[in-house]
Design a protein around this nucleic acid. Structure first.
Lengths: 148, 148
DNA sequence: ATTATAGTTGAAAATGATTATCATTATCTA
DNA sequence: TAGATAATGATAATCATTTTCAACTATAAT
């Protein structure tokens, strides 16, 4: 449990309570780099914590997203997938998404150039369109080896 | 109706028939640069063509997407939005998406740099992960002026 | 032109992800 | 420890998208 106390504090700041479901969900997310759906999480947690409700998982994920702790990705297969944001810069990455099965592969190529471009673009767009930009996505869509 | 005959041919090649609903939907999409939901389209078409069914709209949009004629964008508000692909290079753009109301703004800044990066990345990823890449998205997520 | 064939359509029902409701329970503050 | 209130989880409700299926129609062959 790496940033457990940081999380607790982050929660308190936002008038949120530190509860068992929240801890368990964060712990699960921090153990993997996969992008999980709400049901993935429900399934993984079931053996450890059979009482947990799907509703709570959705609510918690939404909260984490609101607090900026997770990335939310719409894979185009109808479900949203979530992954913990890693603070460490080395981890910056984008997605390669299979539009048939929803599989998400992370890639980290050309990060430096991406970051420069993203930064420039973000500044320009914020001014031009009065948007409050919170996140960005660069994704490539296609078919994975199996689905091709 | 700009590319009407091209569309007809494109359809024939794929064992698809050229029907009234399909023509009407394509005509509507070609009249705007907005990103429309299935319901938007249903609503717009209703006065002109009251008989059309939502089902058909979904089916047609999926077909157009499969034929590579439209872009499909998941705005994160639960609905998919569709826009006709324009062949003309001047039109290349990406999206600024409001995660609260689903509004999509196109932008065309730094296109040249983007295209270079995209091309390089696409080549690298295709090889490395055996993906068949069909499309890409660069999008910035946030809150528009009204939703902020 | 007529017909046979397969692709299309639209209404209704089904599905599946996500959200709202609400009584109960748990966290945190004083 | 008690009280205020946020969080939980079961259930029902929403809402976008799909499936089903009988009726219809574009197209190719006759």
């Amino acid at each position: 449990m790496p940033g457990r106390h940081q999380w607790q504090n982050r929660f308190r700041e936002n008038v949120c309570r530190w509860t068992v479901p929240r801890e368990v969900i964060l712990a699960l997310l921090s153990r993997t780099t996969e992008h999980l759906t709400a049901k993935d999480i429900y399934g993984s947690l079931y053996s450890m914590y059979p009482g947990i409700g799907l509703t709570t998982i959705y609510r918690t994920l939404e909260l984490l997203h609101r607090l900026g702790l997770v990335h939310k990705v719409a894979a185009g297969d109808g479900q949203s997938r979530y992954a913990l944001k890693r603070e460490d810069k080395e981890d910056h990455h984008h997605h390669l998404i299979c539009t048939r099965c929803g599989k998400i592969v992370d890639y980290r190529d050309f990060v430096q150039e991406e970051l420069e471009l993203v930064k420039k673009t973000e500044e320009a767009l914020t001014k031009k369109h009065s948007f409050l930009i919170q996140d960005h996505n660069i994704e490539f869509l296609g078919l994975c080896e199996k689905c091709r």
